[in-house]
């Protein structure tokens, strides 16, 4: 069961961490996200010990990079996801993942409140749309993200022909897009 929370609240937590090194805010954020990060890493193939260790590194990185978080570009959950994903690639897959070059966002401006709000609303909408996907489509999307499997490996594991998987993922994406309109 998912805990109810106000997702804009995590932004306040991030600001408190960034500006005041607020450990109480960090502890609350930790309590919510650390178990999810651990679950993500375990579903990606880490054993409990490695997942626990990587979770600590992910959450410490979140603290360390708090000044780079931009609420008009990503939700806190997305920000946590990208840090956890990068840790997964380093620790589990031993691949490098070069990042695109950054756009010029101007001199450290505070992001626009309207942009932050609309991004948070879209994120909530996306969360609801994913939750509302038919179970089979949601499972495949989760496998594509969490399972560390390419589509053909998913086919081996699920016994579904590759074409079915691709079209199911495509269908799921179409539905998500539709739900976002």
């Amino acid at each position: 069961m998912k805990t109810k929370y106000d997702p804009t609240d995590w932004i306040t937590h991030m600001t408190r961490i960034r500006d005041d090194q607020d450990q109480t805010a960090f502890a609350e954020l930790f309590q919510y996200f650390a178990p999810r990060v651990k679950a993500f890493l375990m579903r990606s193939g880490a054993d409990a010990t490695l997942a626990e260790e990587c979770t600590q590194e992910v959450m410490a990185t979140l603290w360390q990079k708090a000044h780079l978080f931009d609420a008009s570009r990503a939700s806190v959950a997305t920000w946590v996801f990208t840090i956890a994903r990068n840790r997964k690639i380093d620790a589990l897959r031993k691949q490098r993942r070069p990042e695109p070059e950054d756009l010029d966002w101007g001199p450290e401006e505070e992001p626009d409140q309207a942009d932050i709000l609309s991004l948070q609303q879209e994120s909530e909408q996306l969360g609801r749309a994913i939750a509302a996907l038919p179970a089979k489509q949601r499972e495949l999307i989760e496998k594509a993200y969490f399972g560390d499997l390419s589509h053909s490996e998913i086919a081996d594991q699920t016994g579904l022909p590759l074409g079915t998987i691709k079209s199911r993922i495509r269908l799921a994406l179409d539905r998500l897009r539709h739900a976002m309109k």
Binding site: R36, W63, V80, T82, E142
Partner: peptide, 29 residues
Amino acid sequence: FDSVGGALLDGTDSQPVAEDCFAETMRLI
């Protein structure tokens, strides 16, 4: 697509962390 990853992480079942996980993280920091 990153937002989809974020939404999936947000909606995933959680896996309890060890009691000293937070303390260890603070030590790491």
